[in-house]
Design a protein around this nucleic acid. Sequence first.
DNA 1: ACCGTGACGTGTC
DNA 2: TGACACGCCACGG
Length: 110
Amino acid sequence: MEKEQPKYYENVYDVVRLIPSGKFTTYGSIADFLTLGSARMVGWALNQALHLGDVPAHRVVNRKGELSGRMHFSTPTLMQELLEAEGVQVVDHRIVDFDEHYWSPTSLLD
DNA sequence: ACCGTGACGTGTC
DNA sequence: TGACACGCCACGG
């Protein structure tokens, strides 16, 4: 029987799926929104999410705007390619206009 | 059960 | 301002 995944995994996937195209958020924002207490859990969850295939994990970066998880994708450049394809400019593995494309999960509370 | 590692973040120097 | 140390929690060996 398959091992059932923790509840917060599904919460992370749900939040990431709600990120609009052309936008992005950070691990810390998601961790704070779900009160996980540690942003590292978001990273672990997103790593598993890549395996699922229906979660836009490329829209989640660290608080510096760096594509820290690019090496976990099929190719190291895939994450940047996906973001640029959605209109998010990326230079040297970093998002140029951070506040311009930043999306906070607190937007769901409106 | 212990230890090291990891897609992070904040505080301090 | 950048570099470093520490805290954080889950997972694999």
